[in-house]
Simulated scan of single mutants.
Amino acid sequence: MTGLRITVLPGDGIGPEVVAQALAVLDAVAPEVEVDVLDRVNATTFARTGAALTDDDLARIRASDALLLGAIGDPSVRSPDYARGVLLRLRFELDLYVNQRPAVLLHARLSPLRDPARRGIDCVIVRENTEGAYTGIGGTLRKWTPHETAIDADVSTYHGVSRVIEHAFRIARREVCVVDKANAVPFGGELWQRCWREAAGRHPGIATSHLYVDVAAMTLVSDPTRFDVVVASNAHGDILSDVAAAVAGGLGAAPSANLDPATGFGLYEPVHGSAPDIAGTGVANPLGAIASLAMLLADHGHEDQAQAIQTAIRSTVDKRRCTPDLGGALTTEQAAAAVIAELA
């Protein structure tokens, strides 16, 4: 349980605020963990130098066991090269092919659903993270004319699809639901369904189901208790994971992990993004960053500390010792202090 070394990218907006509180929690539960803070990777540096993530930055990240990220994005930077140069470079060069987002209802009052029997969402959205519609493959023909044509390719490979579906089966408790749009996108859809059937054959103890993405979205907001693990393509998983987070009470407390299960390396980050509209106001919810830290610890041999953090989070939310978005009145720092007090 010793020897864990993590790199931290505070990033932009509320990122540095919530990361500071996650590190305070880390110091309370596992002070022996070595932390390397890489605070030069941000929008200010990009605006000044044009560099999003340098080779030296990437080398420091590779030298660690995991990466904790606050948020990337600032309205002052209009170029997509910044976010792509950080997030997509990390995903592609570190081969973080799994995006894993648990969605768990922390308290019944946070659910937007009317029926109490269907509020208890407790599922994981597994999203393919290195293929699909976000590869940047495509182009524009006759740009700036009335006949402009823009093409983005949605890429699915047998290697990529089979390995992310295999991961979904490995973490499932009872069922894997594969989501696609094979009735309208037949070629990629057929590949996803074939890989799903092959994986199901290797895991006979796990139930399986299939939904088209529109039906899956509808079911997430009508009866999310139906799901255990959902696996989907990059774009579909991106949308469904945000829907699941909203059904679980909002983005503020939602964690995520970008993983390469083969190497064990992961990038852990809260789902909420940089939220520049509330940066510096002291109301940002730190629970997403703290829960992301718990995922990191659980994946790297600190299961007891991770479970203690999750229990403390639930307790603070139950007592309304949390930020306003979850029904409390605490500041960012106070909400993290409440978690630390529960740990004590």
Rank of each mutant, 00 (worst) to 15 (best):
L9Q: 02
E17T: 03
A22P: 03
A22W: 09
A22G: 09
V25L: 03
V25Q: 03
V29F: 06
P31E: 04
F46S: 02
D55L: 07
D57T: 05
S76K: 07
V77I: 14
L94E: 06
V98W: 10
Q100Y: 12
D115P: 03
I121S: 00
D122A: 14
V124P: 04
I137D: 12
T140L: 07
R142V: 07
K143H: 08
K143C: 01
W144H: 13
I151Q: 00
A153N: 02
H159R: 13
A168R: 10
R170T: 14
R173E: 15
E175D: 14
V179I: 15
N183V: 02
E190L: 15
E190C: 11
W196F: 15
L211S: 04
V213R: 04
T219R: 13
S222R: 15
R226I: 06
D228Y: 04
A235S: 09
L240F: 11
S241K: 11
V247F: 11
A257Y: 13
D260I: 07
A262V: 14
L267A: 13
P276L: 01
D277M: 08
A279D: 12
T281W: 01
L287R: 05
A289Q: 01
I290L: 05
A291K: 01
L297K: 08
D299T: 04
H300T: 09
G301W: 09
T316Y: 14
V317C: 13
K319L: 13
P324S: 07
Q334Y: 10
A337W: 08
E342P: 04
